[in-house]
């Protein structure tokens, strides 16, 4: 295969990954890794490096819009970034010593968990008053909705913080945004409204992924020739996905992709367990 053909295949695969990642809400990084490692036989280390770079691009790109609309809570994001960046650096260091097949199996498991989680019904809740610690840390805010400005508080700061460390470690170890875990930490544990949780999670991903990406770069995981088509492809795919989501809410499509992703994840676990990755 020539470099040109290889690059075009990578670009097409990355576009599909960005599209599926955006439609399912899983993020492009989590879809591109099995695509590169299972189908194209690229060493999982390079796949993880490229995925991390694409996570930075897509999350920063989409965070831009939400920040300007005032939905993202920058204080909550900044506070929890202490947890995710520490986790991310630890995760990136673990990735350099962890055996490859273990990474593949863990990745598959997280992928299945995220796919299932994306199908879960979300309950809408707004916490009126914050816990004392949350008040001290100014972890409250307001965001615009169609019915006017909604004020919200938070609680369980320590639980959310610990969960964010786990999210950071997995992000650094597996090269993903780990959006599902971040949203669980904010929405389920800290009781932050879902919309604020998802947008703030997105906002945090750029810094979290960068914290581990610079470690990856120094260890040689990041190959410019692989990264270029992957990052551009994932970003364009994600933009297309966002356009589709504005027009329709693809319930059935989401289920279909969740199944596809689960199969991909099982293949990855199988490859990992049998030592083929």
């Amino acid at each position: 295969m020539t470099v040109l053909v290889f690059t075009l295949i990578l670009f097409a695969g990355a576009y599909a990954a960005g599209l599926i990642g955006s439609l399912t809400g899983l993020g492009g990084g989590v879809v591109i890794i099995p695509l590169l490692s299972v189908f194209l036989g690229i060493d999982i280390h390079y796949a993880i490096g490229a995925a991390l770079v694409s996570v930075i691009a897509t999350s920063s790109g989409s965070a831009a819009a939400y920040v300007r609309e005032g939905i993202t809570n920058m204080r909550i994001g900044m506070f929890l970034e202490i947890a995710t960046t520490v986790g991310a650096v630890v995760g990136a260091l673990l990735a350099t010593v962890a055996p490859t097949h273990l990474i593949a199996v863990l990745f598959g498991a997280i992928l299945i968990f995220s796919a299932m989680n994306s199908l879960r019904k979300k309950d809408v809740h707004v916490l009126e008053t914050s816990s004392p610690l949350a008040t001290k840390l100014k972890l409250y805010g307001s965001y615009p909705t169609a019915q006017g400005t909604v004020h919200y508080g938070t609680k369980n700061v320590i639980g959310g913080f610990l969960m964010m460390i786990v999210a950071g470690v997995l992000s650094g170890l597996l090269g993903i945004g780990s959006g599902a875990l971040k949203v669980i930490a904010m929405d389920n544990i800290m009781r932050i409204p879902f919309k604020v949780s998802t947008t703030t999670s997105n906002f945090m991903m750029g810094v979290t992924a960068t914290a581990s990406a610079v470690v990856y770069l120094q260890r040689g995981y990041i190959q410019p020739g692989i990264c270029m088509p992957v990052v551009i492809g994932v970003l364009l795919g994600a933009l297309t996905g966002a356009r589709i989501l504005i027009r329709s809410s693809p319930g059935k499509l989401k289920l279909f992709f969740a199944i596809v992703i689960t199969l991909l994840a099982l293949q990855m676990i199988y490859n990992g367990a049998t030592g083929r990755i």
């Binding site: 020539t2 470099v3 690229i42 120094q218 040689g220 190959q223 692989i226």
Partner: peptide, 15 residues
């Protein structure tokens, strides 16, 4: 573009 793709197995660097 016309060269053959060659990504040898990952070797960790420390730069």
């Amino acid at each position: 573009g016309q060269e053959v793709v060659y990504y040898p197995k990952f070797v960790e660097t420390d730069r």
